[in-house]
Nucleic acid binder design. Sequence first.
DNA 1: CGGGATCCTCTGCGATACTG
DNA 2: CAGTATCGCAGAGGATCCCG
Lengths: 222, 222
Amino acid sequence: MRSYGQYCSIARALDVVGDRWTLLIARELLLQGPCRFTDLKRGLPGIAPNLLSTRLKELEEAGLITREDAPPPIATVLYTLSETGTALEPVLKALGLWGLRFMTEERPDDAFQARWLAYAPEWFTTDADPDAPPAVIQLVAADEAAVVELRDGQVRTRLGRATEPDLLLEGPPRAVLGLINGLIDLERATSIGLTATGRTDLLTRLRPDDQDRGRTRDASRA
Amino acid sequence: MRSYGQYCSIARALDVVGDRWTLLIARELLLQGPCRFTDLKRGLPGIAPNLLSTRLKELEEAGLITREDAPPPIATVLYTLSETGTALEPVLKALGLWGLRFMTEERPDDAFQARWLAYAPEWFTTDADPDAPPAVIQLVAADEAAVVELRDGQVRTRLGRATEPDLLLEGPPRAVLGLINGLIDLERATSIGLTATGRTDLLTRLRPDDQDRGRTRDASRA
DNA sequence: CGGGATCCTCTGCGATACTG
DNA sequence: CAGTATCGCAGAGGATCCCG
């Protein structure tokens, strides 16, 4: 990317990660861990392979990722985030939290993956009752499944299905994620296609972080 | 910007602010407050006017800024951040904090402005001794001046010069900012051109936030 | 089949000039 | 001062092909 030519840490950060696709590549590596070229390509629907190749070179040169020849079983290259790359996590969290406000807009052709279903609760919600017994919530949206585990005051997630979830939330992505992230309430989520089976009381326990959202009324500059 | 076509809040955020210059425009409006076209142009050295014009339209359409005809005295248009736009502050802070690690690299042709000197201490440092009496530090770099005030446990900054600062830090931007942000120590800062006059003990009080930095040795690519 | 490289097209960006 | 008009070029997107 062409440099902004400004001695400002924001501009310098954007010199490095301001290019198209770059932060999304970091997102994939952060969520997936070390990846092969194809893993990244699958996690980034829409990216052209040559562009991915270019970006990976640039990121390696900038010191955000390393490429290693994986050990014998998989004789291929693995891309891994360096410490500098891993340090982007707060940036992605801040960006993702801010971006939640645009998730209510419908765009039916958007791609959707289980991983994006999973990271949202882990990054953007808190267990409101940390001392309560463990609980398991199953999320299903657009054939993608993720499990949310409330345990020890932590909200952890993983891909796939649980055997006996306490609560099952199933419906279109914007219903499931909208409810989880506090963009809409259960009634509204139900009206746009969500089915909630089981202990819906767990929804009050899985509390969305309110960094800046939540004040629908009034506004910024009083 | 062309949409990433992914139902993921990070991707959606980048759909809105991922374009070149967009986040830097937000930076200017956040640091300066409401701006005229020319104020923005001056704060963004290197931007082409047509591109600034295009971005302002896009940002208005996306709801991040509003344009208002300013009252009679200045009969011109003012661009102001909306609540959605103001909510980008955590994103810019995270990005700026991450970007600090690239500030040690020398690039003599980079533009530099007092505002970028001022926001760094306010955003990225803490008063390590909140109960100590107020103190004033004068920063001067590349003919740009800013004042840091330690008071009531807060680190506040403003542009310009103080009458009787307790400490004066003067030198090239990377010496002043590098020292302030904990990228280098006083000895190293002095060796690259910093002069510190007055109560250098205040430097221990102005403590850089250590989100991920502070490990100068060993470093990124282990 | 994984990991790219190559080619072509087209949009977006940068630079400068110009206008109300 | 606040933009618009024009133009050239770099970068993105898409498809195809290549190699181990």
